[in-house]
C-alpha cells in the first residue's frame, strides 16, 4: 500500500473509536504512517494520545474502526506476532525489577522468537553499546537512573527487531537533566530509519526530528502537518491555545 507520492504506508488508522464505559476517548481518528516516518503526537492530557498508541499494539481494545499494518487488519494477525513487530516504550519504563539489564533484554527474544541465548546476548551487547550502557549490563534496574532505565527499555524493545516503535511520553517521568540522553537515543533511532510514533511534550524534539506533528485534542485529530507549519503557524484555535500554554 502506498500513498500518491509512492511512499509505502505501514500503518493506516480508519475512524478509530475507543470508549472507556461512557467516556469516548477517541472519536473517529484517521491517520496514516509511512515507513521510516517519525510522527510526534501532541495535545492536552486526556485527549487520547496514549490511548491511540495503545490501540495500535492492542493493549487497548477499540469499539469501532480499523487499524491496518502493511495493509492487513491488525485483528487478522496473531496478537503476539503483531506485538513483536511493534516495539513500545512506556513513561514508567516498566523494566522487570527482578532481572538484570541483560536478562531484561534477552527474555523476549529467547522465549518468543526462540533465539539462541548466545546470539541474543551478542545482540544485547550491541544494542547496549548503542545506547551507551554496556557497562551496566549486569546492573539491576533499581541501580540505574531514570534516563538509564529508559535507554535500557528502548534497547529491550529493539531486541525484537520491530518495524515500528511507539513511545508513550518516554521522558515525562524523568528529571529534566536526564531528558536529553533519552532524546539523543531516539534521535539516532529516527535517523537510522525507524518508523516512530512519539507522544511527547518535548517540542524541541518535535521541531528537530519529526517529519510530521499530529495534534490530538478531545479524541480527534485537530490538526496535522510539518513541524514548522504546526509550531509556527497553527491554523486551529485549539492548537494555538495549546502551544501557547506549553511553549
Amino acid at each position: 500500500m502506498s500513498d500518491k507520492n509512492g511512499n509505502e504506508i505501514i500503518i493506516k488508522i480508519e475512524n478509530l473509536v475507543k470508549r472507556f464505559g461512557k467516556l469516548e476517548v477517541l472519536k473517529g481518528v484517521n491517520m496514516e504512517v509511512k515507513r521510516q516516518e517519525t510522527i510526534v503526537i501532541i495535545g492536552p492530557s486526556g485527549g487520547g494520545k496514549s490511548t491511540l498508541l495503545r490501540c495500535i499494539n492492542k493493549l487497548e481494545h477499540y469499539q469501532d474502526g480499523k487499524i491496518y499494518l502493511d495493509g492487513k487488519d491488525i485483528d487478522e494477525y496473531d496478537i503476539n506476532q503483531l506485538r513483536t513487530r511493534i516495539g513500545m516504550v512506556f513513561q514508567q519504563f516498566n523494566l522487570f525489577p527482578h532481572m538484570n539489564v541483560l536478562q531484561n533484554l534477552i527474555l523476549a527474544p529467547t522465549k518468543v522468537k526462540k533465539v539462541e541465548e548466545a546470539q541474543a546476548i551478542e545482540k544485547a551487547k550491541y544494542l547496549l553499546n548503542k545506547v551507551g550502557l554496556i557497562d551496566k549490563i549486569d546492573a539491576y534496574p533499581e541501580q540505574l537512573s531514570g534516563g538509564q532505565k529508559q535507554r535500557v527499555a528502548i534497547a529491550r524493545a529493539l531486541m525484537m527487531d520491530p518495524e515500528i516503535m511507539l513511545f508513550d511520553e518516554p521522558t515525562s517521568a524523568l528529571d529534566p537533566e536526564l531528558v536529553g540522553e533519552v532524546l539523543d537515543v531516539m534521535k539516532d533511532l529516527a535517523n537510522s530509519g525507524m518508523t516512530m510514533l512519539v507522544v511527547t511534550h518535548e517540542m524541541g524534539f518535535a521541531r528537530e526530528v519529526a517529519d510530521r506533528i499530529v495534534f490530538i485534542s478531545g479524541g480527534v485529530i485537530e490538526e496535522e502537518g510539518k513541524p514548522e507549519e504546526i509550531l509556527k503557524n497553527p491554523q486551529k484555535q485549539r492548537t494555538r491555545e495549546f502551544l501557547r500554554r506549553i511553549l
Binding site: R83, T84, F90, L95, K111, K113, A157
Partner: peptide
Amino acid sequence: IPKGQYEAARSLGLT
C-alpha cells in the same frame, strides 16, 4: 504488581 509490568511483557510479544 503494577499493571505496567504485564503490559510491558505483553508488548514484547510474550503470551
